[in-house]
């Protein structure tokens, strides 16, 4: 029986069709389509920043070298941490799909842990730069460096908050609607992969080139 019929009216929380099960003719459920669209706009956001970086860099007669000024080692470590965290969300999701909340939660926690380590490292990096009196206003290299990594950091932070929510209060949903809960983890996961991907671009562009 397709979802039209459950979408009958009158419930205090009226239920929206296809917010759990994919719509037959489109093959996705609402949340998944939503996150893809959101990510499309995120691509435009970071795309604009990357093109700004290119424009400023090509316009400048001298451009500082990231690999000299920045802490490449720490950043490399961070890169691997993020990649790892991307793996762990997938694990979390697949365990939830197998109906194993306990394992799912463990993997979510690991993901959060990775994210926090990443942020702490970033904190060290920033502190290091400030010690050497490198501030956003120092030059356009640091300007773009702090702006982009900062914005990316905020995305990580946002992810952490959402994960914490699903680890704690959000998990209540598991009892009533396990499928929906699993979907939500999948969605956050997609977001998380994107944040990860952005870093994969930021790392070479800022640190190595």
């Amino acid at each position: 029986m397709d979802a039209h019929a459950h979408a009958s009216v009158g419930h205090a929380e009226l239920e929206i069709p296809y917010n759990v099960h994919p719509r037959p003719d489109t093959g996705v459920y609402n949340g998944k389509l939503g996150i893809w669209l959101f990510l499309a706009s995120e691509v435009m956001l970071f795309g604009a920043l990357f093109s700004s970086l290119i424009l400023l860099r090509t316009g400048a007669e001298t451009w500082p070298r990231g690999d000299v000024l920045l802490n490449v080692k720490l950043a490399t470590v961070n890169t691997f941490i993020l990649i790892l965290s991307s793996v762990t969300v997938v694990m979390a999701w697949s365990h939830l799909r197998l109906g194993d909340l306990k394992k799912g939660r463990i993997y979510i926690s690991v993901t959060i842990l990775c994210a926090l380590i990443f942020l702490v490292n970033k904190g060290f990096e920033y502190a290091h730069e400030f010690e050497h009196h490198n501030f956003p206003k120092t030059n356009n290299f640091f300007a773009i460096y702090f702006t982009m990594t900062g914005l990316h950091g905020l995305h990580i932070l946002g992810g952490v908050i959402v994960f914490l929510y699903f680890l704690g209060p959000g998990a209540k949903m598991w009892v009533t609607e396990p499928e929906r809960y699993t979907n939500r983890i999948e969605i956050v996961g997609l977001y998380w992969h994107f944040v990860d991907l952005v870093w994969i671009f930021l790392f070479p562009v800022l640190y190595l080139m």
Binding site: A40, M44, A48, S52, P136, K137, T147
Partner: peptide
Amino acid sequence: LLLAFPPLEAAAVLQLMDRVAGTSF
């Protein structure tokens, strides 16, 4: 709206940096 607004958001952030953090984008 979905695809055109984010670049302005980026631009707004950069101009904020110019005004608040003293950068010179």
